[in-house]
């Protein structure tokens, strides 16, 4: 009796210790996440929001980055952007001031937002096109043999390749060998290849989740294989494929390493649509949010004036990624309810 009681007391204690360990681990994650979001949220909103209407710092969202000039004049500390500084100087001709310049810390991040959007759209279109096609081939057409196993292993390995390696690969193949230079199209292919394994795997899973009975039922009515896939398999797999491509979008938008040698410029004066001829559009480098954050956080001397653009960019970036995710979820729910699974 006593031995049993002792044992059960010990079991109970272990039980409680484990419970608390697991619970603390979970709370730890929660605390970290809260801290990150609060930090970026609070510091970022100082840049992104204003206390006067329209309450959003529109210039930050709609202007290109500019150099910030800081100087003392008439006992006052002046912080002017590149353009303002030039205006000020012409208004105060003859006055000679000793101004410190802080790169990228004035103006906004509009070209970076546009660049990231272009990179995401192009690379996702590419990755979804190739990824869904090969997933259809793998799960609907190919018979499981040694060759297909090899293909699958290759895809799995591709998924494990670090993003910087994709960056180097893209640089070697697209930028140098194909001679595309640092360009949108080189970035599309590099980022597209990077998310391809995830998209193939997820698409295959979604395709497999479609009951075999739907294929058989369709084929038995005299539908060809492709008709069956197009009308009776793909529509039901697509919501799942879209859901999983949410992750792909976030990754494509967020990675810096693959684009830093292939597509991203630290600074560019023209917007992407300001090109001489149509084809130039694909062969131009762009600014991008993650790369911009990287540049303003590590490529320029840090001081009290750089925080504004760092946290502002991070805030906008986080917001955009969350917006993309939300859109995909809404889209998926829509198509789900239309299918009434």
């Amino acid at each position: 009796m006593i031995a049993i009681a002792f044992k059960s007391r010990r079991t109970r204690r272990t039980e409680r210790v484990i419970f608390w360990l697991l619970r603390l681990a979970t709370y730890f994650i929660l605390a970290c996440a809260t801290y990150i979001f609060l930090d970026i949220g609070i510091k970022g909103s100082r840049t992104v929001f204003t206390s006067t209407p329209p309450f959003i710092n529109l210039p930050f969202l709609t202007e290109p980055p500019q150099t910030l000039y800081v100087f003392d004049y008439d006992g006052k500390k002046m912080t002017l952007s590149d353009r303002q500084f030039r205006e000020w100087k012409s208004a105060h001709a003859g006055v000679d001031v000793e101004a410190t310049s802080v790169a990228y810390s004035a103006g906004g991040i509009w070209p970076c937002i546009v660049g990231t959007a272009l990179l995401v759209i192009g690379s996702m279109a590419l990755a979804l096109g190739i990824g869904i096609s090969s997933a259809i081939y793998l799960s609907e057409y190919s018979r499981n043999g040694r060759w297909i196993r090899l293909v699958r292993i290759a895809i799995l390995n591709l998924a494990g390749v670090p993003s910087i390696v994709f960056g180097l690969f893209g640089f070697g193949l697209f930028v140098i060998f194909f001679g595309w230079n640092v360009s949108l199209i080189a970035g599309w292919f590099t980022l597209g290849l990077m998310v391809l394994p995830a998209i193939i795997t997820a698409s295959e899973e979604s395709l497999r989740a479609v009951p075999q009975g739907l294929r058989e039922g369709s084929l038995a009515l005299g539908a060809s294989k492709w008709q069956t896939i197009r009308k009776n398999v793909l529509p039901y797999a697509l919501p799942g494929i879209l859901t999983s491509s949410i992750l792909g979008i976030a990754r494509v938008a967020g990675e810096t390493a693959p684009i830093m040698f292939t597509a991203a410029y630290a600074m560019k004066d023209e917007m992407p649509w300001q090109v001489a001829k149509f084809t130039d559009f694909f062969f131009q480098g762009v600014m991008a949010l993650p790369y911009h954050i990287y540049v303003v956080s590590s490529k320029i001397p840090q001081n009290e004036y750089t925080e504004r653009v760092q946290y502002g960019s991070a805030f906008v970036f986080l917001f955009l990624v969350m917006l993309i995710a939300l859109t995909s979820i809404v889209l998926r729910e829509r198509s789900r309810s239309r299918l009434s699974w």
Binding site: G213, L214, G217, S218, A220, L221, G222, N232
Partner: peptide
């Protein structure tokens, strides 16, 4: 085989309506 299956219809053991 597509033509064959159009001529030979089938009702499956496990009923499989389309969604």
């Amino acid at each position: 085989v597509v033509d064959l299956r159009r001529r030979v219809g089938m009702v499956f053991q496990k009923s499989n309506p389309f969604p």
